[in-house]
Amino acid sequence: MQVTVWDTYVTRMDGLIMHFDILVPVAINDAAVIYGYGKEYLKTKGQEAQSLTSKECQFCHIEEASPEIKKSVKAKGYHIIEMQGCN
């Protein structure tokens, strides 16, 4: 399964930056859907009030999904890779 990777930088409520990737199947190319997945993730981190638009989240590349990512995508439609400031 190939996935698109959307590189995302969101300013948290405390002013620090959260950097994470949103991975979705290549068939999903509607940015609004992808931003919705990002907002779901932000809600789990208590950051649901933060902006998530093309300014914060942009297509980066396509890659082959690992078994773990495939499982996550099949379960909820997307996968998040936390990079920085997500704790």
Score class of each variant (00 low, 15 high):
Glu40Val: 07
Lys71Trp: 09
Pro67Asn: 05
Val10Gly: 02
Met13Ala: 10
Ile62Ala: 09
Ile28Lys: 03
Val3Phe: 00
Met1Cys: 13
Tyr35Ile: 07
Lys70Cys: 12
Gln47Trp: 06
Cys60Lys: 14
Met18Phe: 05
Cys86Trp: 11
Leu16His: 09
Val26Ile: 15
Glu68Thr: 15
Tyr41Lys: 01
Met83His: 05
Ile80Glu: 00
Ala32Pro: 00
Ala27Ser: 14
Gln50Ser: 10
Thr53Ala: 12
Leu16Val: 11
Thr8Leu: 05
Gly36Leu: 03
Met1Gly: 14
His79Thr: 00
Cys57Phe: 03
Gly46Tyr: 09
Leu23Pro: 05
Ile34Ser: 02
Phe20Leu: 10
Glu82Thr: 04
Val33Leu: 08
Tyr37His: 12
Thr8Tyr: 04
Cys86Asn: 07
Trp6Asp: 00
Met1Leu: 14
Gly38Ala: 08
His61Lys: 04
Gly36Thr: 00
Cys86Asp: 11
Gln84Gly: 10
Lys39Trp: 07
Gly85Lys: 01
Glu63Arg: 09
Tyr37Trp: 09
Gly38Val: 07
Glu82Gly: 11
Gln58Pro: 05
Gly85Gln: 07
Trp6Ser: 00
Ile69Cys: 04
Thr8Asp: 10
Trp6Gly: 01
Lys55Pro: 07
Ile69Phe: 03
Glu63Val: 15
Thr53Pro: 00
Thr44Ser: 04
Glu56Leu: 08
Glu68Asp: 14
Arg12Val: 03
Glu68Gln: 13
Ile17Leu: 13
Ala27Cys: 08
Gln47Leu: 11
Lys55Val: 13
Asp30Leu: 10
Met13Gln: 06
Lys71Asp: 09
Ile69Asn: 01
Glu63Ser: 13
Tyr35Ala: 06
Asp21Val: 02
Lys76Val: 13
Gln84Glu: 14
Gly38Lys: 03
Lys74Asp: 15
Met18Arg: 07
Ile69Arg: 04
Lys45Trp: 07
Arg12Pro: 06
Lys43Thr: 13
Gly15Asn: 13
Asn87Arg: 13
His79Asp: 08
Asp21Gln: 03
Gln58Asn: 13
Ala65Lys: 08
Glu40Trp: 02
Asp14Tyr: 07
Asn29Ala: 14
